[in-house]
């Protein structure tokens, strides 16, 4: 697990980008917990961290594609990697080395 930020660094219900171990990751703080997925939408490269977030999903700000934050699954074959996140003592850690759900091989 790699330290990413303090809990207060991300406004509630929003996402922010961070590079961890060379990987660009969008980190989300929602009502149901913290989630981390690849920062870039596979459709046209939209910044997922700028999307609207609800309990378990983020919608890309460019073309409204929605991804499940728990699994990274998007519409059809679109998929991003989702990474385990842990909150300890007000600090947020991400396991970028181990996608929670590995992307399907093309």
């Amino acid at each position: 697990m790699t330290f990413a930020c303090r809990e207060d660094d991300v406004p509630p219900g929003e996402g922010r980008n961070i590079t961890l171990e060379g990987k660009r990751v969008a980190l989300f703080r929602t009502d149901t917990g913290w989630y981390a997925v690849d920062a870039v939408c596979p459709h046209k490269g939209g910044p997922l961290a700028d999307g609207i977030v609800c309990d378990h999903a983020v919608t890309c700000p460019l073309h409204d594609r929605s991804f499940d934050l728990r699994t990274g699954q998007g519409p059809g074959e679109d998929r991003v990697s989702a990474y385990p996140v842990e909150l300890r003592d007000g600090a947020v850690y991400v396991a970028v080395g181990s996608p929670a759900a590995a992307p399907v091989a093309a």
Binding site: C5, R16, N17, I18, T19, A49, D89, A91, Y93
Partner: peptide, 26 residues
Amino acid sequence: HPRQFTDLDQQPEDDGPPTPVVVGPP
């Protein structure tokens, strides 16, 4: 929010002199 305009590895604007970005856990 202090990070209204910045990502986590960028320095949020503030009034004082620049301080290094926190890179480690507390």
